[in-house]
């Protein structure tokens, strides 16, 4: 069962963030993690928690029960999906009454939640299953000249009670993974702050102010890029950076990279292979040096 996972994409990644999926698959294949495709999956349930907790529980349990039939653990790229599936997995494993209630719904589609699989996010898999040492070994082109900042996002860290593999107040995993590529990971103010994405659509103004504050803090330490591991955080910064610059009269020009894109570069892959072309904020500052090396190749 080790290093073989059912990949759970969720909604946001196929909808808008293909670069995250492309780069993640590339690095995982290089690290020897086998991904099994699911014939059927649906929304993890998270978007419906605010309006109907019960809907969220049923949708998450349905996905978990389908994975159980395959007898494989789930790997998610989206921390929102990871957080939801982990939380519901824990709740239903521990609470017999709720489990029975949810199973009465699942029965109608011939499914049953038994609680036999685990859920991991990419970050947790890289740290626990692959290991930092193996990632260091996979690096053929250390990014020693790069100084970047990390943004974990909320759902990979909190609530501690359900997620709990890293310290929510001082998370280390992403930093360690960034440093494994040879790049320097800079400290800055408010590293664990929310990107604001969930408030888009309810109050764009509040959401953009949150993202602006983050980008200001990242700019303060002269980071050459901001590294994310969540499709929503990535949309919030990458897609909205220009809008934030215009709205608040700021200048950033900070490329927003998915962690697998950074690791992929360090593994010797080209920006093109890692779908850098899909990024909205021009990543040329970062890719320039790799493109030149590309051109010099025989």
């Amino acid at each position: 069962m080790t290093n073989k996972y059912l990949i759970f994409l969720g909604c946001a990644i196929p909808y808008r963030v293909a670069s995250f999926e492309i780069s993640s698959r590339k690095i995982l294949s290089k690290l020897g993690v086998e991904l099994v495709e699911m014939p059927e999956f649906n929304c993890c349930g998270l978007p419906f928690d605010p309006v109907s907790h019960e809907t969220m529980l049923i949708l998450a349990a349905k996905n978990l029960a389908m994975a159980e039939q395959q007898g494989l653990n789930i790997l998610t790229l989206c921390p929102g999906c990871a957080g939801t599936l982990k939380k519901v997995n824990k709740i239903l494993k521990e609470d017999k009454k709720q489990r029975e209630q949810i199973n009465s719904h699942l029965k109608r589609v011939s499914l049953e939640f038994k609680g036999t699989v685990e859920v991991k996010h990419l970050l947790q898999l890289l740290r626990e299953d692959v290991g930092i040492d193996k990632i260091k070994e996979s690096v053929t082109r250390p990014l020693t000249e790069l100084k970047v900042a990390e943004h974990n996002g909320c759902h990979i860290l909190r609530p501690k009670k359900y997620i709990g593999f890293d310290d929510p107040e001082d998370p280390q995993t992403l930093k360690m993974l960034i440093e494994a590529t040879g790049a320097t990971c800079l400290d800055y103010i408010g590293e664990t702050e929310c990107c604001g994405a969930p408030s888009v659509g309810v109050s764009d103004k509040v959401a953009l102010q949150l993202a602006r504050e983050k980008l200001n803090h990242v700019k303060m330490v002269d980071a050459q890029a901001l590294i994310t591991i969540c499709p929503f955080c990535h949309i919030m910064y990458d897609t909205n950076e220009l809008r934030i610059e215009k709205t608040f009269n700021e200048v950033y020009g900070i490329p927003i990279l998915h962690y697998p894109q950074l690791l992929g570069l360090a593994m010797g892959m080209t920006p093109e292979e890692l779908a850098f072309g899909e990024l909205r904020v021009n990543p040329q500052k970062i890719t320039k040096q790799f493109d030149i090396k590309e051109q010099n190749k025989p």
């Binding site: 928690d49 909320c154 929310c194 408030s199 309810v202 509040v206």
Partner: peptide, 12 residues
């Protein structure tokens, strides 16, 4: 009520 971003900082 609908502004909460569900960042869970308060919960933790």
């Amino acid at each position: 009520l609908w502004l909460c971003a569900a960042c869970f900082t308060c919960t933790d």
